[in-house]
Design a protein around this nucleic acid. Structure first.
Length: 552
DNA sequence: CTGGAAAGCGCC
DNA sequence: AAAGGGCGCTTTCCAG
């Protein structure tokens, strides 16, 4: 980390990734260093420097004496084209300033070696970012992206910084105990599997499993893998095979345990920060093409919940002593967004009446006199509701719900018959996207989709699904981001000690002092429901508990 | 030893 | 002829 002094006598800037932090100007160099030195020497900050999440941690700790965040070229370039693979500063400099920089002048500033070279590199970065401000801001303005940049993505930086710094408490002993249990389960399953396979092999290896199932035991293979067109051993194939042989069922059980153990139970304790006893994930703001956040190191947005065994992992996510966890999640956020964007009267009516949308769809497409049992009807209706959102075809819907392609087609037709504006919304969205080359969310966030004009049919179809899904998924992301920023401000204004600690797409998790539980509950619910005014009500449910497993 | 591709699967 | 949108992580396997 180095302090970059740009435009001497005017300001000092600390480069943070692709952004610059402006110190009060004019500020002499030694005063700038005085502000920053305590941060740079903070052991927690130094330790994090290798992991790449230093920038936000530093930002989260900045206090008095810092003006605020200057221009952020990373966020700007993300908003201008969120589908890009990388946003290297070099590329932005070439693109917006028409300059080629010699390789190696940028990059992450190291702590120890070659302080002077490091300072020069950081200075070059800060300088580049400052000069990108003009042209990139002009481009944001021209593309109608300035409001999202200024009122959403920039304010969100500090919210995410605080969230990462807060982290979440994890019960290490509980995970270690679970790991021992699972070890024994895997050992037993391994013995069964090798016996049934008439020989030992690596169960974790799809190629070896493929050989056992389809050659040694001569089972009939189902679908092929995407890349190598080899016989797939994926879950749905093994489910089929489980009907005729005992082995596939055991493999599925083995995989379920192995997945939970390796990805969560064994991995999470390793990521507990010894200094805080908590896990501090990184919430990436410039990865998802739709505008969603992503979480990494660890990914806390995919902690199991679906199965009872997996759900137990959430028991290890606990509140600090004297605190509770508060979870608040949107109810059917994407279907509400779809209702709003499409303007479909029936769908809007459903949400305005506070009806269960899957029940309503079930009634709409099956009518009163269907031979299918009601539970089955609702299950199908739910799948149809979501299938349409993702651009699922009758072919794959049929396989999912276990009916013929003809029947699946009939369900989809019935759906569009009852929700006609959803069909026109999808068709119009794709048609307009083909003309403009992009789609937009509620708040104007943009995603470019050049592949809509691809000569390749599958590539083109994929782009069409993205065109219909992105406004829905991306608008939902807009909503929750707005809620996070509003909530953060309200918590500060009311001087509450409750802290936002996780975001999981449609859910916010807070850690709240026991005496603030009710106050924080009603606040988070109110803020989430009022994030944006739609043609349908937004509904958020909040629950308090001692662990993440308790709050759903 | 590292890096990447592939397969598979956890979540919304 | 392909066949559900968006992510990140684990393991295996192979190349350098």
């Amino acid at each position: 980390m180095a302090v970059a002094i740009s435009a001497p006598g005017r300001s000092a800037y600390l480069p943070l990734g692709h952004s610059v932090l402006a110190l009060p100007s004019p500020l002499p160099v030694d005063e700038a260093l005085a502000v920053l030195r305590p941060l740079l020497e903070d052991p927690a900050v130094r330790k994090l420097s290798a992991s790449g999440k230093r920038d936000r941690v530093v930002l989260g700790r900045l206090g008095a004496g810092v003006e605020g965040l200057g221009f952020d070229a990373l966020l700007a370039s993300y908003l201008l084209d969120p589908g890009r693979r990388t946003y290297a500063l070099e590329d932005l400099v070439l693109e917006f300033l028409g300059e080629r920089r010699p390789p190696g002048t940028g990059g992450v500033a190291g702590e120890d070696a070659a302080v002077e070279a490091t300072a020069r590199a950081a200075g070059a970065d800060a300088d580049a970012v400052l000069r990108l401000d003009g042209p990139m801001t002009a481009k944001l303005e021209q593309e109608g992206l300035l409001p999202v940049y200024e009122s959403m993505e920039m304010p969100l930086i500090e919210v995410l910084a605080d969230m990462e710094r807060a982290g979440v408490k994890v019960d290490r002993a509980l995970l270690v105990a679970m790991s021992r249990d699972m070890e024994a389960q895997l050992a037993a399953l391994t013995r069964d599997i090798h016996r049934l396979a008439k020989g030992e092999f690596n169960i974790n290896s799809p190629p070896q499993l493929r050989e056992v199932l389809f050659e040694r035991l001569g089972m009939k293979s189902g679908k092929k893998t995407a890349k190598t067109r080899a016989a797939s051993t994926a879950e749905d194939v093994l489910e089929e095979l489980a009907l005729v042989h005992e082995l596939p069922r055991r493999i599925l059980e083995y995989r379920a345990v192995q997945k939970l153990k390796s990805t969560y139970v064994d991995a999470l304790p390793e990521l507990i920060d010894p200094a805080t006893g908590r896990i501090h994930a990184t919430f990436n703001q410039t990865v998802a093409a739709t505008g969603r956040l992503s979480s990494a190191d660890p990914n806390l947005q995919n902690i199991p919940i679906r199965t009872p065994e997996g759900r137990r992992i959430r028991e290890a996510f606990v509140a600090e002593k004297g605190h509770r966890l508060l979870s608040a999640d949107y109810s059917q956020i994407e279907l509400r967004v779809l209702a709003h964007l499409s303007g479909d009267p029936t769908l809007i009516d459903t949400f305005r009446r506070g009806e269960d949308v899957h029940d309503r769809t079930s009634r709409e497409i099956f009518g009163a006199l269907s031979a299918i049992p009601p539970d089955e009807q609702r299950r199908i209706a739910k799948m149809v509701n979501y299938a349409l959102l993702y651009g699922k075809t009758a072919f794959s819907l049929a396989k999912d719900i276990g009916v013929s392609r003809k029947e699946a087609e009939a369900f989809i037709e019935a759906y569009f018959g009852r929700y006609p504006r959803v069909r026109t919304f999808i068709d119009d969205t794709i048609a307009r996207a083909r003309e403009t080359g992009h789609v937009r969310t509620l708040l104007g966030r943009l995603r470019r989709l050049p592949d809509l004009k691809s000569k390749s049919f599958p590539v083109r179809m994929e782009a069409e699904r993205q065109a219909m899904n992105t406004p829905v998924q991306g608008s939902a992301a807009d909503l929750i981001k707005r809620a996070m920023i509003d909530l953060d401000r309200e918590l500060h204004e009311r001087k509450l000690r409750s802290r936002l600690i996780l975001q999981i797409h449609d859910e916010l998790l807070l850690e709240v002092p026991e005496d603030e539980g009710e106050k924080a509950s009603s606040l988070v619910k109110r803020v989430m429901e009022g994030a944006l005014e739609l043609d349908v009500p937004l509904v958020a449910d909040a629950h308090l508990g001692r662990s993440w497993a308790e709050v759903h």
